[in-house]
Design a protein around this nucleic acid. Structure first.
Lengths: 152, 152
DNA sequence: GTTCATGGTTGCAACATGCTACCAGCGAGG
DNA sequence: CCTCGCTGGTAGCATGTTGCAACCATGAAC
């Protein structure tokens, strides 16, 4: 997406998020990072993506503060890519996409990967949106408001 | 993303979701649909995207069962695009992206749009991930499991 | 020191994107 | 009934991005 309208200056947080992530590959890289991938080769094998693409995406994610480059944990001279706190904050995004996919794109009985609670081995509870006072909210119960900047 | 590896046959729900949405534009169209946009022109003005791009994306979203084409609600001869139930199920995805963006890309006091509870006008509670038994889970508390298909 | 694996970079062809211009159907006004 | 303007597109073309393959540099293994 070559943009002329700057998404990273939009007043919509969704647009800025989308811009910060970059593209689908980057999102799948983040997913793999949550799933335990750390090395260039791991991402490459898992995604089946061309190495130059992976290379630029990893650089972009590091530049965006979503991944960090750290020395390899196995003592080898290579390095690894790990999620920063900012990157870890993408967890609900990945979970939401995962649950949407599970609900709409798999026949029952079709093999698929599933995100489960490490302790119990059971799937996570479905994400739900709540008001500040605890009421459950659906899309119709919400509205987008403009928040003006305040003078500093 | 021109893919050779078929994402829509991946066993990962995240990959299928990503494939079904199509691209960032499509996701921003869905966001606008949640925000109340219904007409071609509304999406176009809101997104500032070229009309041919918008046209193909809308077609793709309709083909994917995320949007539906309905007669215009104002009685005119035109039609409108509305979210299907499957499209509305993307709500947590948009909310998650929105909250991530709000948390990481805006200085305090910077103007931005905000999703609020229609009744109270207050922002939504942050999305959280829970185990089936109600414990709060972070990324480290989860693991991805392969679920084998069962013979039919 | 040769060989293999890792982690890339470079070049090129094919493809998708985005801009601009154009076009068709509808409704209103005269 | 003729034109004007709005809505909702399509067509052509320049440009940018993708993906593949080939190459390369470093570290580890033998």
């Amino acid at each position: 997406m070559v943009r002329r309208t700057r998404l990273d200056e939009s007043d919509c947080p969704v647009a800025r998020s989308v811009d910060a992530i970059g593209d689908w590959w980057s999102l799948l890289i983040v997913r793999d990072a949550f799933d335990g991938s750390r090395r260039f080769g791991e991402f490459q094998r898992s995604l089946g993506v061309a190495k130059n693409i992976l290379s630029t995406r990893l650089r972009g994610l590091v530049a965006g503060g979503i991944l960090d480059v750290v020395p390899a944990s196995d003592g080898s001279a290579y390095h690894e890519y790990v999620l920063t706190p900012k990157g870890k904050d993408l967890f609900p995004v990945i979970v939401a996409l995962r649950q949407w996919g599970e609900g709409h794109f798999f026949e029952s009985g079709e093999p698929h990967s599933e995100l489960v609670d490490r302790r119990s081995g059971r799937p996570l509870r479905a994400l739900e949106t709540y008001a500040a006072d605890g009421r459950r909210l659906g899309p119709e119960d919400t509205v987008v408001k403009k928040v003006d900047g305040v003078a500093p």
